[in-house]
Amino acid sequence: MSETMRQQIVISGVGGQGVLFATRLLAEAAIDRGLPVFTSETHGMAQRGGTVVSHLKVGPFASPLIRPGQADGLICLKAENIPAHGPFLHPGGWTVVNRASGGVGSLDADRIACDLGDPRAVNLVVLGFALAAPGDAGKPLLFCSLAEVQRVLDRRLAGRDSALKRSRAALEAGANAA
């Protein structure tokens, strides 16, 4: 039997940035692969510009939450959240972060999204980057590929051509920045 796929990812940002949407795209990509999946989301008051965090667990888990020190990766749409959510990572965990000042695993997604004329697409720019960025030994960071997430996006935004075009462009722009 092949090794059971298990991946735990924390996606962090502030209310209004589209953390939920990015989480859902990855979760649906997991289902398309026939993998069991759990997510846990922030709703309510915090969605009004407060700190929000999603947990994504791909594989045979029972609990929807990731314990500190257990996450394989952190996708961070707001660099200011690193002190709060970085400790979710296990010692070898990776980080992808939206940050203007550069550094390993970082990209200036705010600028890329503004250049695209779609400032609200920061979530997809960062997600595109995470899907394309090479990890250890050139292996991809995430359990699924850019093409698989694109397929989920096509399905979710079917019939809304301009939204789909913009979203695809954002995802690709992020991937190209990797």
Binding site: G15, M45, G49, G50, R67, P68, P87
Partner: peptide, 16 residues
């Protein structure tokens, strides 16, 4: 030794 999250004050919610 169970790792815990540090008590970091997050961003407070505001009206849109």
């Amino acid at each position: 030794d169970v790792p815990q999250l540090p008590a970091v004050a997050g961003r407070r919610p505001t009206l849109c």
